[in-house]
Structure formats: C-alpha cells, structure tokens
Computed example of a mutant assay.
Amino acid sequence: MTLVRGDLINIVLITVDQSGKGDFQRIQDAIDAVPSQNSEQIFVYFNSPGIYKEQVVVPEDKPWITMSGTNETTTIITWSGPWHTLQNTTVSILASDFVGRNLTIQNTYGPGIQAVALSVFGDRVAFYNCRIFSYQDTLFDTSGRHYYSNCFIQGATDFIYGDALSLFHECYIHSISENGGAITAHKRSSVDENTGYSFVSCNITGIKPNSVILGRPWGPYSRIIYAYTSMTNAILPEGWNDWNNTTRQSTSYYGEYMCYGPGATSSKRVKWSHQLTSDEAKPFLTKDMINGDEWLRAVPTQFKKPSFPLKPEK
C-alpha cells in the first residue's frame, strides 16, 4: 500500500485512556501493538485528559503513526531524567511520517545537565499545537525534515538543537535563561548539507531583559533564519554568538528578515549575521523549504478498527 498526503479516511484508530476505557492504558503499549513495517496510517488517540508518566519510543520500523491528545494543556507526557543515550528522552521519534497533535511533552529534571523532552530522528515529522518543556536541550531536532506549527517550546540552554531541516511556523519560543543562554544550536557540518532551522511568524520571549541569544553554531556551517518574528527585549543586542570559535563567523549563516519588537533592533547585531533581502529570505519562508506539500497531512476524518491484535508485539 502506498500512502499519499490526501488519505483522510479508513485510518486505523487506537485509543489510550488511563481509566481503562480505551484500548490501552499506557502509551508505549499502544505503540508496541503496531506491527513492524506498518503500512497503514495509525491514529493513537487519547480519549480523555491525563498525565502519562512514562518514556515513549516510536521505533524506526513503525512509520505512519499519529499521537493526538484532546487538549495540549491537559494531555501530558512527562518524565524526569538526564540524557545519556540518543533514546533517553521523554519522547523519541525514530520513525518517519509521524505526527504529534495536542500534547504536552516535558522533562522535569531541571538545570545542571542535558535533559531532553523530545528527540526527533525520523523524516517527514510534524507537530501541531504541542507544548515542549525542559531546561537544557529541550528539543533534539536531529535529522530529517520537520514541521512545527503553533507549538510552545521552552528551555534555557541550546534548547532547540540538532541537524534537521525544520520549519517552525507561528510557534511561541520562551527562554528561561538568566545569563545569555542560546535558543538554538544547529549542527550543519558542510555547505553542501541542506539543513537548517527557519522560524516564521513566531514569538520569542524570556524571563528577563538581555538574557537570550538567537543561536550559536554547534557545527561550522550552522544555519538559522528568523522571519516575521516578534522579539522582546529578552534578546541580547548582539543577537548571536560564535561559541568561542571565530572561524565559524565566516561559515555560519544567521539571518533575520522583517522581524520586529525591541529585541529585533539590528544596529548592534554581530557583523557576521545578515539582515536578509526578500530574495535571500524567500527559500526559508514557506513549506516549500521542507517539501511540505508532498507529505504534510490533515487531520483524518474517518476511522476503522485495527486488523492486528490489540496487544504489544512480542
């Protein structure tokens, strides 16, 4: 079966409910029940609000899964712990063609060490109306093409980082740094690598004035764009940092286009950042950046019961 973007009917529905009124009480049990090498769209729906204290892994061999809560403020996946391995996060998406909707994903470990809430490895992954919370390294946006729409992302240090090609559209980015923490740390390692982060029509806030930078280069060819984005006075006037490696000033690509607010003032920006022209900004402004029209899909409208057993695979 070949799935296409327009498939909105005959989606397999699996329900999760802590009270026992769904197919599963635990999220991971629902994911485990999906057959390996799945070729159908699977909609994992949370029947009612709840706080799910567990780690969730969507493995690479289980594509085409959507996880959807009822409301992003009341459907919460939470865990508390430091980052030691690539999968040691609250939620890890290793599969392609995954969608997350109306969820809070958080790691409550706090400051002192990396504590990832969400890691995304798969290609063609989208999140809508989600809240993602931690302190250091909140979102490991590591590889593939990704789309974040109307999401709230909070952290203090490098809290959106990795080497994906990702579009953040109408997202709310909130820093809890008090001393110049970076929002982004992108790891593009070659000028030929088509990766980068673009923030379009977003809002950026912080807990105090002059406490946040827009990004710093984890890799030598780090690429970050902010366009049509509101920036409060939490943004430091220089805007960007070279992470104590001046050679990366000439290879990183940091641009801003038509941003506004007190934090968007360009007069004191580092000289190696760019105030983009319309032609320079154009490739980073729409879903074309991630070929989104080929794979982003709407909320399904009709569902069917699964043909596979509602129990985890052994």
Rank of each mutant, 00 (worst) to 15 (best):
G110E: 11
K305D: 15
K304S: 05
I183T: 00
S189A: 15
L236I: 09
K304A: 00
S149D: 14
D61L: 09
A281C: 11
S119E: 00
S119F: 00
V57T: 14
K305F: 14
A281W: 05
A95L: 02
I183K: 00
R269K: 11
P312D: 08
G81F: 06
W218H: 10
R297W: 08
I132E: 00
Q28S: 11
T229V: 07
F303G: 05
V34Y: 07
R26F: 14
L3C: 09
Y161V: 11
S190D: 13
T195M: 02
S267D: 12
A185K: 10
T286L: 09
K287N: 12
Y45S: 12
N194D: 14
R124D: 07
S96P: 05
A30N: 08
P312W: 08
I51L: 10
I27H: 03
F168W: 14
I31V: 15
S68D: 13
G181I: 04
W240G: 01
D288V: 12
R5W: 09
M258C: 12
D279F: 07
T73Q: 13
G239S: 11
I9G: 03
L94D: 10
Y147S: 08
A95I: 06
Y172D: 11
C259K: 08
R26C: 11
G263V: 03
K271T: 15
F284H: 02
E193P: 01
G22Q: 12
G100A: 15
L310K: 04
T70G: 15
R223I: 02
R131H: 12
A298E: 10
V12L: 08
D61C: 03
T246C: 09
P82V: 13
G22R: 10
N245Q: 15
G206D: 04
F133L: 08
N244W: 08
N245Y: 09
E256S: 05
I132G: 00
T246R: 13
T251C: 03
P283D: 11
K304W: 05
I204P: 02
K304R: 13
R124K: 15
H186G: 06
P59M: 06
Q37A: 14
I160A: 00
S36D: 15
T195P: 01
A95G: 02
R188Q: 11
C130N: 15
F127N: 06
L103K: 02
D32C: 06
L165E: 13
D137T: 09
V44H: 04
T15D: 07
Y161T: 10
S307R: 12
F159M: 03
L285R: 09
N71G: 14
H169R: 14
N38H: 05
S189W: 10
L165Q: 14
A30F: 08
S36T: 12
N47I: 13
V58A: 01
I235L: 10
P283I: 11
P59N: 07
V270N: 06
A33I: 13
T15C: 07
I213R: 05
T104N: 02
Y257G: 05
D293G: 07
G239P: 01
G69E: 01
M289S: 03
D192F: 11
T74P: 00
A264D: 09
R248A: 11
P306D: 12
S68P: 01
P35Q: 13
Y109T: 08
G112H: 10
Q136F: 08
G162W: 03
G196D: 00
F121C: 07
R26P: 04
K62S: 02
Q37R: 14
F308R: 13
T75P: 10
K268H: 13
I65S: 03
V125W: 02
D192E: 13
F133E: 00
